[in-house]
Design a protein around this nucleic acid. Sequence first.
RNA 1: CGGGGCGUGGCGCAGUCUGGUAGCGCGCCUGCUUUGGGAGCAGGAUGCCGGGAGUUCAAAUCUCUCUGCCCCGACCA
Length: 585
Amino acid sequence: MRYTNLYVPTLKEAPADAEVVSHQLLIRAGMIRKLTSGIYTYLPMGLRSLNKVAAIVREEMNRAGAQEISMPMVQPGDLWKETGRWQFYGKELLRIQDRHGRDYCLGPTHEEVVTDLVRGEVNSYKQLPINLYQVQTKFRDEIRPRFGLMRGREFVMKDAYSFDADDAGAEASYKAMYAAYSAIFERLGLTFRAVEADSGSIGGSFSHEFMVLADTGEDTIAVCTACDYAANLEKAGVAGEIKPCMDQGPMMVEVATPGTHTVEEVAEFLNVHSMQVIKTLLFDADGEAVAALVRGDRELNEVKFKNALGCAELVMASPEQVQEWTGAPVGFAGPVGLKVSRILADKELRGATDFVVGANKADTHVRHVDLGRDVGAKVQFLDLRVITVDDPCPHCGGQLSMPKGIEVGHVFKLGTKYSEAMQAKFLDANGREQLMIMGCYGIGVSRVVAACIEQNHDENGIVFPPPVAPFEAAVLCLDPKKEEILGKAEEIYNIIKSTGADTLLDDRDERPGVKFKDADLVGYPIQIVVGGKGILKGIVECKDRRTGEKIELGLDNFERDFVAWRRDVWCGWGLTDGDNLDVCR
RNA sequence: CGGGGCGUGGCGCAGUCUGGUAGCGCGCCUGCUUUGGGAGCAGGAUGCCGGGAGUUCAAAUCUCUCUGCCCCGACCA
């Protein structure tokens, strides 16, 4: 491809509304343009990268036995009413009506459609297992789209759905997808971790997220430095338990704590450590008032709390609700005499004596509270708090680290949630009707491109891993007006292309600096500079974008030397180009 | 949905308080010079100042309203 035939509108400055680096660079590199909030057009360069990711995803999905289909983006509301999600999915589901007033929605995911398809077609265990996937544009009406491709409303997703006859089969399907995902992210050249994720109300440990590690990630994960444990922070269980202290403390007593609203203020006012204060958090759980207790210096893990309650909706209480339930303004809630349906406490507080809690009275706290003695059996103790780096690994007790990650994939065992709601059944070998066991597996294809940039960039621009770059190599012809130089550049370009690398020839009549800057900005992994000086010496200059290292290759043995050097570049990424699978490992 | 901010040439911004001929940088076009890390000089084009209504002799500027976008929060298969 010649640059003069390509539309690549690069920018020196980043648009003001681009906050994260991937968003800025995608726009500056001329890969995407915003149409409206959370919705982007892919320009030629952006689409090339997107397609490259999708191609690798397809190869590995096919290899794992999944079959590609393509389902409609517009879906009938009736299907969603069947599973109840028409009601529960919320505003993220963009609903539309046709001219007859019938309900439709823009598909944010396809469990309903695929289950409808399969229930109509599959009747026998002999037809199972089956795994269907698609690569498709999804729409979710996010409350607040942001970060460019990282959290758009319209985005490209690969979603796969497996149907199995029994649990063992479903587990095998899950494992096959887990393996395929690992292969995909490895081939893309990304540094990632598969982490245990919260599986919500469905239960079981069958949920993993694939996280691309990047300092700018929105999620935090807990990773053990000693064993292979890795989990999403919201999932990570806190090991161990402090043994109950049986000593009776002093009797509780009310103290005035005017104007102290936060744990820190209370602790400072009473001259105690914040770990001697109990934080009481009030929530509205499906309409019921509930309270969560954690040590003052800890953070409540809302996912654990919600799972423990088993409720559908968990919302932090409003100031009005707090006033109504405690009789006091926000900041003075406490478990003593609290009139709520349930009080759950973090297990760390079991046997807790001599704590400071709110008095449910304005500007007042209570000292020397003993949860067992003063609040009683009403309190249940569970693992409710967010794990910290100082906690031991729940598996081996080792030291944890907590890197940031970007969720790019999720594998999930659904069980019979949808097959039951939609009556997707088959006849087993004994002629009995059974529900199909399902799994779903997503990869945010467009988000992968963004995550890749978050993980791989420098002050000059994107540092694309070769498999994701819009072009693997760019031949920069510094002097295209001189026929001889352009001719050489074309020769080099053709040789590189013939070695299998996707190549761009920058034949623009621009100053060299412009071409260098643009090449670094877009981040072609391999840059070949063909200029008058080099040609005179009989060499061209080859630059590895990742390391910045340049070497000179002679024109005489260019093809041979280039192939070897290209292999080195790939190896630097921990990759092979697919034809030389064993070279790097 | 609550709070805040911003809409001025393709991009980044000034001008708005205090009403009086719409500006700067980048980009774009033409010419000459230049040519290994975003060139220099000269000339040029491009604006319903987000839309509507009002106040005024006069509105980018003041008032009201609508709309779009961004940030913080709540929310999030």
